[in-house]
Design a protein around this nucleic acid. Sequence first.
RNA 1: GGGACCGUAGCUCAGUGGUAGAGCAUCUGCCUUUUAAGCAGAGGGUCGGUGGUUCGAGACCACCCGGUCUCACCA
Length: 521
Amino acid sequence: MSEQNELIKRRLEELEKIRELGINPYPHRFDITSDSAGLIKNFKDAETDEEKEARKSELHSVAGRIMAVRKMGKATFCHIKDETGKIQIYIKKDEIGDTAYDVFRLLDIGDIIGVKGYLFRTKTGEISLHAVSYELLTKSIHPLPVVKEEVTESGEKIIHDAFADVELRYRQRYIDLIVNENVKETFVKRTKIIQSIKRTLEKHDFFEVETPTLQSLYGGANAQPFVTHHNSLDIDLYLRISNELFLKRLIVGGFNRVYEFVRDFRNEGIDRTHNPEFTQVEWYQAYGDYSDSMNMFEEVVEQACIDANGSTKAVYGDTELDFKRPWKRLKMTDAVFEKTGLKVNEMKKQEIIDYMKDNGIEFDPKISHSKGLLIANLFEETCEEDLIQPVFIHDFPIDTTPLCKPLREYSMKQLEEMSKDPEQVIYVERFEPYIYKWEMGNSYTELNDPILQRKLLEEQVERGRAGEKETHPLDEDFLKAIEVGMPPATGVGLGVDRLVMLLTNSQSIRDVIFFPLMRPL
RNA sequence: GGGACCGUAGCUCAGUGGUAGAGCAUCUGCCUUUUAAGCAGAGGGUCGGUGGUUCGAGACCACCCGGUCUCACCA
């Protein structure tokens, strides 16, 4: 708080005056009987004089923050805002008393007051509360941005001087929530979406669990972790990048269906769809495969959309998205074929590289050893941009993940032969749902063959040593769990923030996270 | 991390090298059904920071701080 600031200085002086008058500017409680939305909704105009007179004895107590004041000599109008909306308050000097009225004149936009009064409709038609008494509940000493709202004759709202500086809005979300009308709505929807997802999962007998955020080994996703340190154990720990490996341990332990909402931390770039900490829900289901997960996924998301927006449709930017089940399901290689006409399985690795070079498709030379990674790369570069409506892209090359079961059509012998031939691509039962060009999640028929699991994880460790950054270290305890025996299972990770973005028409992930990471000032 | 752009009053913004501006908010006066209330007046600034160019910099240059968009990495 800058000592120099005149607005703050003036408010501190007023605070002193109020205290000198024997008024506690920060009292302990206030009895509320009504909220603004309820009062306005239930208001019925009094027709006769008798009714008008009777109305004066129907008193309501509301509390809220002063958002606008219109002083008119011996009467004052103001709007107060509570959790449900705004209501206009009318205060008259000759009714409320000289002293009380003078004190009221010391109040500012931003102060919180409780008002007791009766309802009436003003000459200009606004349902308002005629105060018979009021109480200062909190004196604000830090001025709020003054946002003015104009309602035109056609009934549309024009916002003047909107508090629009995104940096200030994110850094001071409390102010953003007070003065910007739609911000709270977005976060209310966020909670509704999360509750909806939980309800759908619970309906299908998924059981909510909790697993560690601090981990001595990280895994379950391709990402760089945050590192921290435990002092008394004197060991480095990682903030989780995924909870997959722990949820699988619980499936081994005998839970058939588990889910967990988690904050994941990934030490990577920040942009409009990435925040270093983000929310994911993962669920695992024993005895099911990835098509069961597709069914669950589309049900979870469709229901979330209905619960947040009232229908299966949501408008994002200038696009209407429809989450109605069932969603299209498309093999990755078919997607590539539809877009490019290439039959990648019949091509040599070098032919794919040549095609990408010839068509200016970027790829990291580090992946040129793997035909599978090249195909995945080709898919991302050519197909993603067209995936607007919800679609499941399934059957990924095995090199994209070490945690997923190969397609059931392969025989043991085939797998063995194919894995020796760099021109052969083994596909695994993995899918990613795409909506509006974004990967919304990730799912597998989970690998539970301990021998193959160890081989794939060890290969990944090798690739890590060779310079690939986002591989993870070998988790022997996880391998032990798989050796104990994990039933056939399927699991899903769903990016909650991105789903909320789509369902609330938010253009940045920072608009759906209350306190996004900002560089300290 | 790279590139483009932005930072002026509490808020929203003008200001193309020559005295720092407007609206809202604030303060004073008037106003007892106003509503972007109104009318009359007043105060309010290290122009993000540090250097430099210049007789003179809010503006031009360099670096730094913070942000937005975008690319890379990823979900």
